[in-house]
Design a binder for these strands. Structure first.
Length: 395
DNA sequence: TCTGGGGTCCTTAATCTA
DNA sequence: TCTGTAGATTAAGGACCC
């Protein structure tokens, strides 16, 4: 027996099918049977967040540039995401899932891991539990889900992906190796574009080929840690821990401009809006963080981040804005038009909110002149044409 | 060719510190 | 006190995921 087979655990992975698009088709009967693309609107910058199965027939996939999607299917229904709606449906789904077991880990808005070990006496064999899960979700929301069941998270996840939509896949411990063998290595966790290229160069396409690969070559290409991780996955070895209520580690907001920006006032205004958004969430969740991160993407997709650790944790938008702006103005970043700007906060203090209050009051009177100074500082970077704006503001 | 937004985790390099 | 070093921390970037 391999390690993967020495287990009596059963993990389920539930994945709602084309979640955003399905919500829209459910609520708008006129969209049913039509290709639906949720994401950016054609003509603007952005990508596909979700594509209905009808849209997928045109080769439209999530994360594809919206311009590309439009070229493939100009007649599709293009919609902006309605996150409020999807969050509400998601809450409904999770409430239903918790009627099966409380040991549920939310992996995303439309995905969950469940530890269903030991539920057989109550609900029947794993396949019956999976069926029941799907039935209850559909009854409550009229949405379909795909479910995978296996001895650990990896197998459950690959299982839910195996048959879609509305699928149910059960992989018993003694079937794990055969289940994995023919799969493309790109299905493994942590294989994206770059790693995929490395596998290509090694002539490895399937999990079976990965299993047979020379250890030295793999380590040289991917590094010792990644190589070991992929080897374990190839043998079906993975965590079976389902951790309910994982705490978030950071909050961030970013915005891509529809056209690249060189105007410092515009940048600062956008940053203020983002900082306010981050601060609002932090306060609502009673979190205060010590590390502020500025993210900036220039023309040409050149992306940089700059961080600063504050002496005290904060969730004050003024501190966030001031710090992020300073990171931009004081840094060695190039003088280029800005495509995206973002701000984040992380590294929570233990007694978050109390400390934050103290620091906030200490910085209460951070004055606006200082901000205007730095705005001028940046407008200088872009030449005299923009300097006028900074001066105007003072009047 | 064109690449959102909100996250997590890993690697690496520089710096601090015991 | 000096020096070398190992380990921790910080910062930046990259890969990946949904």
């Amino acid at each position: 027996m391999t390690e993967a087979q020495q287990t009596d655990r059963w993990i389920a992975h539930v994945d709602l099918d084309a979640f955003y698009a399905s919500c829209e088709q459910r609520d708008n009967p006129e969209y049913r049977g039509r290709p639906v693309v949720v994401g950016a609107l054609p003509g603007r910058r952005g990508v596909v967040a979700a594509a209905s199965y009808e849209a997928r027939e045109f080769g439209i996939r999530s994360a594809m540039p919206i311009s590309d999607a439009y070229r493939r299917c100009p007649d599709a229904v293009y919609l902006r995401p309605d996150m409020r709606k999807y969050s509400q449906v998601s809450r409904q789904v999770f409430a239903v899932i918790k009627t099966i077991t409380p040991v549920v880990e939310q992996a995303s808005i439309d995905e969950a891991y469940l530890d269903i070990s030991g539920l057989e006496k109550l609900l029947g064999p794993p396949a019956a539990i999976g069926q029941e899960l799907k039935r209850r979700i559909h009854e409550a929301t009229r949405l379909t889900a795909s479910v995978g069941l296996g001895p650990n998270r990896l197998i459950a996840k690959l299982g839910s992906d195996y048959q879609k939509p509305d699928g149910l896949t059960v992989v018993r411990p003694d079937e794990v190796l055969d289940f994995l063998a023919p799969m493309p290595v790109t299905n493994l966790r942590g294989v994206g574009r770059r790693t995929s290229r490395h596998f290509d160069e090694l002539g490895i396409r399937t999990v079976a080929e990965l299993r047979a690969a020379a250890p030295g070559a793999l380590e040289q290409k991917l590094g010792p840690r990644a190589a070991a991780s992929f080897r374990r996955q190839a043998d079906g070895i993975a965590s079976d821990a389902v951790v309910p209520g994982r705490a978030r580690k950071s909050i961030s907001k970013e915005r891509t401009f529809n056209e690249d920006v060189t105007d410092a006032i515009k940048l600062h205004d956008q940053l203020r809006e983002l900082a306010a958004g981050v601060a609002r969430i932090a306060r609502r969740e009673n979190l205060a963080g010590q590390v502020i991160t500025l993210k900036i993407r220039f023309t040409g997709f050149e992306t940089h981040t700059r961080q600063k650790k504050l002496p005290q944790a904060t969730h004050d938008e003024r501190v966030l804005l001031q710090t992020a702006w300073q990171l931009y103005t004081d840094s060695d970043l190039p003088r280029k038009a800005v495509r995206l700007i973002g701000v984040g906060i992380s590294h929570w203090s233990d007694n978050s909110s109390q400390q934050a209050d103290l620091f906030d009051s200490a910085t209460e009177h951070a004055n606006d002149d200082r901000l205007l100074d730095t705005i001028d500082n940046v407008t200088d970077r872009f030449g005299s044409g923009k300097l006028q704006l900074g001066v105007n503001r003072r009047q």
